[in-house]
Amino acid sequence: MQEHDMSWVRTEMALAQPAPARERGAYAWVRKNLIGSVGDTVLTVLGVAIVLWIVPQVINWAFINAVWTGPDRTVCTTASQGGIQPDGWTGACWAFVNAKFGQFMFGTYPIEERWRPILVAILFVALLVPMLIPRVPRKGLNAILLFAALPVVAFFLLVGGVFGLPHVETPRWGGLLVTLSLSFVGIAASLPLGVILALGRRSKMPIVKILSVVFIETVRGIPLIVVLFFASVMLPLFLPEGVSFDKYLRALIGVSLFAAAYMAEVIRGGLQAIPKGQYEGADSLGLGYWQKMSLIVLPQALKLVIPGIVNTFIGMFKDTSLVLIISMFDLLGVVKQNFADANWATPQTAKSGLIFAAFVFWLFCFGMSRYSMYTERRLDTGYKR
């Protein structure tokens, strides 16, 4: 029997080789993403030109020519370098933000009691951060403390009237305190309500399905301003004599129900995207309806619609500014309210205040967006080639 020469056959795995020098590093990234073609090169040059034109002006306005401290508007209309400018002071008036910062954060909450919302904020961060870190253990206990225990503790701390704490009426709340509290409660309530409404709309029970459809389509068909106006002004007319709810509580309910209707449609889209085989597989295992939904269907559906869920959260966070229609002042409302202060009533202070409010809103919305992208990547367990 003739032997075959096998000397040409590799007996060891080839070691991984680094990519060619021209395919790695900063130059390779620039060549691939910025100057890969004539069109890319033109857009890159145009974008760099716009940035070089805008950024120096922004830095000059926000930092170099800005006024950081001062007792009143005169510091923002008189330049410390070169006297009065022809068109007024060309820098930001951060002195206005600095002077009104306490109101921007807490509204007219009593100064001597502001340690209470600060303590609530510390507890919120202390419970939220471990919840967002995947590898931190005891997520169940953390969720219970964050979504069940913290709201109760926050209510007694902020409202007072117990344990020797002075009572603080909710009309005195304002600023970022109102924005964050409305958003947190709305997010915590709208997600489970949205899940229930989405399941109800897909239910085979006619009454449950009809009620879910009527609620979702009715709420989604009217603006949030109308919902808030109805909750604040019209709802008390339908209540028995002597029965009333706090205006802040009515705003909470209105925002939560409004967001739940939109959340239900987002989650329904995720439920419809689940292949029929997943339902049939769960049925073949003998799982009941709630077991099938909680263990098989909903985890997959919620993972698919993370962008839509976070988009609803971001929209709700920004829509809290509409509570101004019912005489409640969130961050933007308090900023605009302080424009009427005769000591600070100038166009420069108005611009600076609005930009400060915009930056705070952007900071929270950008944070939610980036974390949702991180969560998507972490939960991406689809088939990979």
Rank of each mutant, 00 (worst) to 15 (best):
M1D: 04
M1W: 06
M1G: 08
E3K: 11
D5K: 09
M6W: 07
A14G: 08
A19L: 09
P20Y: 04
P20T: 02
A26P: 04
Y27T: 05
Y27Q: 08
W29K: 05
R31T: 08
K32W: 09
L34K: 01
G39K: 11
T41H: 05
T41P: 05
T44G: 05
G47E: 03
A49M: 07
I50V: 13
W53Y: 10
V58E: 09
A62L: 15
I64F: 02
A66P: 03
R73N: 09
V75N: 04
V75G: 06
C76G: 13
T77L: 06
T77F: 03
S80T: 12
S80A: 10
Q81L: 13
G83P: 01
G83A: 00
Q85C: 14
G88N: 13
G88V: 13
T90E: 11
A92D: 03
W94D: 04
W94H: 10
A95V: 02
V97F: 02
Q103T: 04
F104K: 01
F106L: 05
Y109I: 08
E112M: 06
R114A: 03
P117S: 08
A121N: 03
L123A: 15
L128A: 14
P130E: 01
M131P: 04
V136Q: 11
L145I: 06
F147E: 04
A149G: 09
L150W: 15
V153W: 05
A154Y: 05
F156H: 11
L158G: 08
G161K: 15
V162G: 07
V162H: 15
V162Q: 10
P166Q: 00
H167N: 05
T170P: 15
G174F: 11
A188G: 13
P192S: 13
L193R: 14
V195R: 02
V195P: 00
S203L: 06
K204A: 15
M205R: 15
I225W: 00
V226N: 03
V227R: 01
M234W: 13
L237Q: 15
F238K: 08
L239E: 06
E241R: 06
S244V: 05
L249M: 09
L249C: 03
S256H: 14
A259T: 12
Y262D: 00
A264Q: 02
G270A: 13
P275H: 12
K276V: 08
K276Q: 14
A282Q: 01
A282L: 04
A282S: 13
G288D: 09
G288L: 11
G288N: 14
G288P: 07
Y289H: 13
W290V: 11
V297I: 15
Q300N: 14
A301R: 00
L302D: 02
L302T: 04
P307N: 05
P307F: 09
V310Y: 10
N311T: 10
F313Q: 11
I314V: 07
G315T: 06
F317R: 02
L322D: 04
V323E: 00
L324W: 10
L324T: 07
M328K: 02
M328E: 01
F329R: 01
D330G: 04
K336D: 09
N338G: 06
N338R: 10
N343D: 15
A350W: 08
L354D: 00
I355Q: 08
V360S: 02
V360F: 07
L363C: 05
F364A: 02
C365G: 00
C365K: 00
G367P: 02
R370S: 15
S372P: 07
T375A: 12
T375W: 09
E376A: 03
G382N: 10
Y383G: 10
